[in-house]
Amino acid sequence: MAFVNGQLQAEFMARVRGVDPQRCLVVPVDVGKRGAMALVADHYGKIVVPPFEFALNETGFAQLTAEIARAEAARDAAICRVGVESAGHYHRTLAARLRAVGLEVVELNPSAVKEARSQQLMRRLKSDARDCGAMAELLVRGSGRPPQQRTAALATQAAWVAHRRRKILAQTALSNQIHAGLDLVFPGLTGCFSHGLEGVSLRVIMREIPDPDRVRRLGVDGLVRFVRRRGARITQAKAAQIVETARQVLKLPEADWNAASAVLAADVTFFFALEEEITKATAELSTVLPDTPAGVLTPPANASGSPHPNFLAALLPLNLATWGC
């Protein structure tokens, strides 16, 4: 017979079929930032251990396991399932410790917990215990799945993917601020380039001379030499376009321009620091991905021998659900 929640629910129901519901216990744990709340109930819905709070440390862990052991002994439990909501990261260390001492632990979908919490029966519980009550209902129904067990390679991948994703999001937001800053400090400069902040010569200018007065004094030949000495390519035509933009610029009053320039310099420095972290994360991932189920080969290197910065761009999208993160 098919079950609504699939094979995992079918397997659980097969385990409890014929077992006295009083001997089947569920332990919903509502985890917060520094503490948690739990209760113990049987499959009739009767509370065996009333809701109690405990700290997310070794003392609190000992309190939780002691209450579970007491309930198991009182009911001669045949099955005891601990359930946590898989929202955020606060539950992960507790779930790992519970599994380490041999308890059965499952994670519950946050949307399912929210839906169960709204049921009429949950109103009989105090508001701070309703999440536990909702999770207990789900556990009795056989909802939940075991926490993902990661190999060392998968754990490393997940950590670096999350790190890389956060830095990409931060750099994307910062690039918008830099565009706004350049529009105040050097209006029209970004309009000379068609690829946002990716232009190598643009990066040299915004990092070292985002000043239309200096660019105007350098002139076309001077700007070409300045950029090329820093390892970037720029054509005479592009340099001429930038110099002409500098000549036509509407500049802020000196006090305003100096303030905007200082903020822009700070943003640009942070932007390149984030880029270094993204490159580092990409390099770390390039070494671990061959050992994961993805089985991705080592990326091609650029001229300097380091992984190409655009490698994995298609493999590591911002939506990383399929990467176990």
Score class of each variant (00 low, 15 high):
285 L>F: 08
285 L>N: 06
285 L>W: 07
285 L>Q: 02
285 L>R: 04
285 L>S: 01
285 L>D: 00
286 S>I: 01
286 S>W: 07
286 S>T: 03
286 S>N: 15
286 S>Q: 06
286 S>G: 15
286 S>F: 01
286 S>Y: 02
287 T>Q: 12
288 V>P: 06
288 V>E: 01
288 V>A: 00
288 V>C: 06
289 L>D: 04
289 L>R: 06
289 L>H: 08
289 L>Q: 10
289 L>M: 14
289 L>Y: 14
289 L>W: 15
290 P>H: 09
290 P>L: 09
290 P>S: 05
290 P>C: 09
291 D>T: 09
291 D>M: 09
291 D>G: 02
292 T>E: 01
292 T>W: 08
292 T>Q: 06
292 T>I: 04
292 T>M: 06
293 P>R: 03
293 P>D: 06
293 P>I: 04
293 P>T: 03
293 P>V: 05
293 P>M: 07
294 A>P: 06
294 A>V: 06
294 A>L: 15
294 A>F: 13
294 A>Y: 11
294 A>R: 07
294 A>N: 00
294 A>D: 06
294 A>M: 11
295 G>Q: 08
295 G>V: 04
295 G>L: 09
295 G>E: 08
296 V>R: 10
296 V>T: 09
296 V>A: 12
296 V>F: 13
297 L>V: 11
297 L>P: 05
298 T>V: 14
298 T>K: 11
298 T>D: 02
299 P>I: 00
299 P>H: 03
299 P>N: 00
299 P>K: 00
300 P>E: 13
300 P>S: 11
300 P>V: 14
300 P>F: 09
300 P>T: 12
301 A>T: 15
301 A>W: 00
301 A>K: 14
302 N>Y: 01
302 N>M: 05
302 N>I: 00
302 N>D: 15
303 A>Y: 02
303 A>N: 03
303 A>F: 00
303 A>S: 13
303 A>K: 13
304 S>V: 12
304 S>L: 12
304 S>G: 04
304 S>R: 12
304 S>W: 06
305 G>M: 08
305 G>N: 04
305 G>F: 08
305 G>E: 07
306 S>V: 12
306 S>L: 14
307 P>Q: 05
307 P>W: 05
307 P>K: 03
307 P>I: 06
307 P>L: 04
307 P>N: 03
308 H>A: 11
308 H>N: 14
308 H>Q: 12
308 H>E: 12
308 H>W: 10
308 H>Y: 13
309 P>W: 04
310 N>D: 13
310 N>C: 09
310 N>F: 10
310 N>L: 14
310 N>H: 13
310 N>K: 15
310 N>Y: 10
311 F>M: 10
311 F>I: 02
311 F>G: 05
312 L>D: 01
312 L>P: 01
313 A>E: 14
313 A>D: 15
313 A>I: 07
314 A>V: 12
314 A>W: 10
314 A>L: 13
314 A>D: 15
315 L>T: 05
315 L>P: 03
315 L>N: 06
315 L>I: 09
315 L>G: 11
315 L>K: 02
315 L>M: 11
316 L>I: 14
316 L>F: 12
316 L>K: 00
316 L>T: 07
